[in-house]
Design a protein around this nucleic acid. Structure first.
Lengths: 245, 245
DNA sequence: CGTTCATTTGAGCCGACTCAAAATGGGTGG
DNA sequence: CCACCCATTTTGAGTCGGCTCAAATGAACG
């Protein structure tokens, strides 16, 4: 089975302009009028790469730029006082990274790659200049932040009120729907993160995540082989995970 | 013991200008240069009031304005498909409400008052006009959103990795620190929300919240009489709640 | 083909939930 | 001002889900 990177890598060759990028419909310029998109495009640094397991950005670092993932996937996390890893979420192609940085001008969580990653970079200095004169871009950045906030709160609610199976179902259904929006198969995918990462994201132990997957398999909702997932009953997963189908 | 409203009500008489408002150092204009603050002030509708138990805004409503609480407190929540209430958080004086609305132009959670509330209102139409020409205001709104996002993620992390006592400790320590930043006593306050609200916020049952408070009392960290709280060991609470003292 | 890491599976325990009842406090009307 | 009533909060007993510790299986890589 192909990884997310392989699938998207094929569709998004390196260094094309935003206009020709496969991610265009889900990336920053998606909601911008033509002239604004062109102006933004001129400020974007494209075609940057990182190997698997590399660090894209570190907590405390000044927010020098906004990043948008183009292919591959990454893990957003922070390290607590006692050394434990809190996984805030996973980043897919077309998603922006580092938005929390707007709070204080520096990043507040670590982002590291789960697979080889390619991304675009928009320097903050240029972004601020552009926001001065592009009303659509202003709205788009606000929209992005609002969405991230909404998403974060939704997830918090899920954590607060679901049991282990509900959380894992939510995770899978959400991932599936995000993949679908990116034009990838929502029912056949390979997880780029470990069970331990999923567990730390959902506030569970890796054993509990494994057992939840086991029961979904036994009930015929999934086929699971290591990190390869086939979703047989997306409706059931979404319902249990508190998401609309 | 005085309620938050009574305490702040005395310090923030109705309808003063932003320049004379007691909340000035923690409100929107706090980080704006003088001329920008004056321009924003002209757009603000002040001196609005609601009784306890009223609804300030409703999910699905178009985002017509940004709200800033001036005195009193409110509960942010949403209602899930199965009718349960997810409490996202509590709003204190000087805090903005409805930021998630930037995602799609309409509010996504309900906000209702826990005490009589007074607030200011900034119409979105005027806010957008002002953002066109005030770079400081642009930065400030982005900062606000970034902060809300950061806060939401921090809380999610806490939920994911703490047990019941840790969550309640976090809640109290956080509330205490927010009160302190508003110039109120961080160690003597009255909770405006019920145990059930706290429980739904923290993903616990009200009995568990009550028991956690009971153990803190028994250990000499708190004095608790119904909704009146005296914090005797803020350091211990902060440590257990994963917050810096 | 062997080594190593990730994942699954099992057994026992503990903390938070559920259901139920008692106590406390705030508010109201006499 | 007092007594009563109601909602809220506290406390108790028993159950269950998820955690911990441990071992076995499976997959990936050289």
């Amino acid at each position: 089975m192909a990884t997310i990177r392989q699938l998207l890598g094929a569709a998004a060759p390196v260094c094309v302009s935003c206009r020709d990028c496969a991610l265009k419909p889900i990336c920053l310029p998606a909601h911008l009028p033509g002239d604004e998109a062109r102006a933004l495009e001129a400020a974007v640094e494209r075609g940057r790469h990182l190997p698997a397991g590399a660090t894209l950005l570190r907590a405390g670092e000044p927010m020098s730029a906004l990043f948008v993932v183009r292919s591959g996937s990454a893990k957003r996390y922070s390290v607590t006082l006692d050394g434990a890893e809190q996984v805030h979420g996973f980043v897919l192609p077309g998603e922006a990274v580092g938005l929390e940085g707007f709070a204080g001008g520096h990043f507040t969580c670590e982002v590291s790659t789960l697979e080889p990653l390619s991304y675009c970079r928009v320097p903050m200095s240029k972004l601020e200049q552009l926001m001065e004169r592009l009303p659509g871009l202003r709205r788009e950045i606000l929209r992005l932040l609002g969405q991230a906030l909404e998403e974060s709160q939704r997830l918090r609610g899920e954590l607060a009120q679901s049991d282990a199976r509900g959380r894992v179902a939510h995770f899978l259904a959400d991932l599936s729907q995000r993949l679908a929006r990116r034009g990838l198969s929502p029912n056949e995918f390979r997880l780029s993160m470990s069970r331990a990462d999923i567990a730390r994201h959902l506030g569970l132990t890796l054993e509990t995540v494994s057992r939840a997957l086991g029961t979904f398999k036994r009930e015929g909702w999934l086929r699971v082989r290591a990190r390869d997932i086939s979703v047989l009953r997306p409706d059931a997963l979404a319902a249990l995970g508190g998401l609309p189908a």
